[in-house]
Design a protein around this nucleic acid. Structure first.
Lengths: 231, 231
DNA sequence: GTCAAGGCTGACCATCTGGTCAGTTAGCGG
DNA sequence: CCGCTAACTGACCAGATGGTCAGCCTTGAC
């Protein structure tokens, strides 16, 4: 996002409204799920009149798509920056991608729940596979760093495990250590030697927040009220 | 289910209506998701008047709960029968539970999609853990058949992988062999020796259909039309 | 200070959905 | 054949939801 700095106050106002709607959408969808979310829920949470909504988005679908795209772009960018220096070791790339994604979702429950409940458009598991998606896994197999017979099955197991873990971490059913433990187990599953897997997943992870420009404030780690509603 | 045989024609009619509603509910929820399913969708699919719905269920929640309970009971019963003779080897119990659940969901897409889209009340992953849930895994750890440091993490990985696999199998993104392959990988993950895992997951699985009374017809393996709808 | 442009507002409308109920029909006992 | 009970039916109602629009307010140019 960040499309060419807003020139004047009017533009900034417009952007503020749009941002308020997107933030509200993420928040509401995160706590109720996409299907249960009405446009009024969003405008109420954004403290914006209903009519304004249609100045920015053509309907519910559009705002969901926009919110998802923004979220994906942000996470993807961060992962790319984070893993770029590690590209010569697929195992490290995967470990960092997994751990960063897990941590980001858990430390900002609004983000985590939004991804979990935003529908088919976005999946934590796929994000956690890293900026290069399954191509990183494929490279690892070709280079002999990984040993596994079926790329697709590997990706399925990784993605599924990640999603399940995020959900249970957000529900408070698993301790923080489970994140590193999961990453280590997944590396082992891919045939990375035990010691390596352990060592790699114990490496320091850069602190959260956009890794390049630190001007961006971290954003309060909101807690997420109870889910569901409606009938 | 099967609560004391229906005595007369009137009773049978009532049961038929109820069953039609439940079947319709499973079918509609499977293709649209719970939240997008209206009561009229269900009564239309069941070819029953709207008012009749409330003769049997107090509302949408009630029919979903009933459908879920029935489904869980049926699958649970089958798993129990299937694994009872294997109880002295937790690895075999788990393998059969996993494979049967996967197969049942994939061969009857209506069932599979229903479970995937019925909401938080039912999760394939938990079903696949077997009739005894995680207690089977725990037994395996205690008896030394499994080696893993964290039961909850193990269950999370298993449940997550299973759910992801069922979804992708139903979408046709993975070949049938992936089911056995997943089971084998999960056993290895739990520390079962490579050869054992391979052998156990290659054992014959009894044919589908209720393993005891074969009077029950198998039910046509309906295909499932495209999901989503609304907005 | 004045004015035009564009964003914001909330009342308003059409539609849909959950839920009700008076009336109809099927089945059973006599 | 008759009458009673219980299930079934579908028109109907109230509330919620998506989407529109005429008017208001903020901003920036002059």
């Amino acid at each position: 996002m960040v499309t060419s700095e807003p020139r004047n106050r009017a533009d900034r106002r417009r952007l503020r409204t749009r941002a308020a709607l997107l933030t509200a959408a993420r928040q509401v969808i995160g706590s109720q799920g996409v299907d249960a979310t009405t446009i009024q829920d969003i405008t109420d949470a954004a403290d914006v009149a209903k009519g304004s909504f249609y100045n920015h988005f053509s309907g519910a679908d559009a705002i969901v798509r926009a919110a998802v795209e923004e979220t994906l772009a942000e996470l993807g960018e961060t992962l790319e920056v984070l893993t770029e220096p590690l590209r010569d070791d697929p195992a490290r790339v995967l470990a960092v991608s997994l751990r960063h994604t897990l941590r980001a979702c858990v430390q900002d429950p609004t983000l985590g729940w939004f991804i979990l409940r935003a529908g088919d458009l976005i999946e934590v598991g796929d994000i956690a596979l890293g900026a290069y998606g399954r191509s990183d896994i494929r490279r690892g197999l070709e280079s002999g760093r990984f040993h596994f017979d079926d790329v697709e099955l590997a990706c399925t197991m990784i993605a599924g495990s990640v999603e399940a873990l995020v959900r249970r971490r957000l529900k408070g059913e698993l301790p923080p250590e489970a994140e590193e433990a999961l990453a280590a187990h997944l590396l082992r599953l891919l045939g990375v030697p035990d010691g390596d897997a352990q060592a790699i997943t114990e490496e320091e992870l850069p602190p959260l927040g956009d890794p390049r420009r630190t001007e961006h404030e971290p954003g309060p780690a909101q807690t997420n009220p109870d889910p569901r509603r409606r009938s």
